[in-house]
Simulated assay, not measured.
Amino acid sequence: MELKNVYPVKVNLLPAQLTVKKTPNWVRLFFMVLLISLSVLYAFSFLMLSDKVFLARTQTEELRSRVEVLRREEQKLRNVEERVAALEKRLDLLQSLVGAEPDWLRVFEAIGNSLPEDVYLERFRASQGEMRLEGKAFSIFSIAQLISTLSNYEDLFREVDLESLSLEESLYKFTLKAGLVEKSAS
């Protein structure tokens, strides 16, 4: 029978003193460990930085969308401010127009309170700070009393004067002219 060797066997016949002991190459081992650790560190840093870059890009996109929303809101606010400014201009115009007008309710109340019993008015006209009253009376004294009473309302009328007087069928037809005092702007 023949002996078959499946595994190659190495036999060293040199005496143990002459055999060279294999020692590890520490320099090569150190550089290999250093290379592997630097590669792992590089891979870890790459993964961490790529994750940070992804988060930064996501945040940048969110901020851009917020900026766009804020720009639209700012435009809406500008439009509202323009409308408010236009309304304020209209309000100022209306206040100036109303402020220039006399207090008509007080004017008519003063005229009504000043009319003697035998005087009646036919026409009232007002234009640009003055008014004209046309009416008829039974006596000149009633017209004088009306002028005197209206003159007492200094906060409403200035310079109440008799503009015309005529006698028609036992009635005195008269026209009074009075300057209107403008309201003070409040």
Results as ranks from 00 to 15, higher is better:
26 W>C: 04
26 W>F: 12
26 W>G: 08
27 V>G: 14
29 L>Q: 07
29 L>P: 00
31 F>C: 03
33 V>A: 13
33 V>D: 04
35 L>M: 11
36 I>M: 09
36 I>V: 13
41 L>G: 13
44 F>P: 00
44 F>G: 10
46 F>S: 13
48 M>K: 15
52 K>W: 09
52 K>A: 11
53 V>L: 14
53 V>Q: 14
54 F>T: 15
58 T>K: 15
58 T>Q: 15
60 T>E: 11
63 L>Y: 05
65 S>V: 08
68 E>H: 10
69 V>L: 14
69 V>Q: 15
69 V>A: 14
70 L>D: 06
70 L>V: 06
71 R>F: 00
72 R>F: 05
73 E>F: 00
75 Q>I: 01
76 K>R: 11
78 R>S: 09
80 V>L: 07
81 E>A: 14
81 E>W: 07
81 E>I: 08
82 E>Y: 02
82 E>R: 12
84 V>K: 09
85 A>W: 04
88 E>W: 04
90 R>E: 11
90 R>F: 06
91 L>C: 06
91 L>F: 06
92 D>K: 13
92 D>Q: 11
92 D>F: 03
93 L>W: 07
94 L>S: 06
95 Q>P: 01
95 Q>M: 11
95 Q>N: 12
97 L>S: 10
100 A>W: 03
100 A>V: 06
101 E>Q: 11
102 P>V: 09
103 D>L: 03
105 L>W: 09
106 R>T: 08
109 E>I: 08
109 E>L: 13
111 I>A: 05
113 N>M: 08
113 N>S: 13
116 P>L: 02
116 P>R: 04
117 E>T: 11
119 V>H: 04
120 Y>P: 01
121 L>R: 01
121 L>H: 00
122 E>P: 00
123 R>M: 07
123 R>P: 01
124 F>W: 01
124 F>L: 09
124 F>P: 01
127 S>P: 00
128 Q>K: 13
128 Q>D: 14
130 E>K: 13
131 M>I: 13
131 M>K: 05
132 R>K: 12
132 R>V: 07
135 G>V: 03
135 G>C: 06
137 A>D: 01
138 F>N: 15
138 F>A: 14
139 S>A: 08
139 S>M: 03
139 S>P: 05
140 I>M: 12
140 I>W: 13
140 I>N: 15
140 I>R: 15
143 I>S: 03
144 A>C: 02
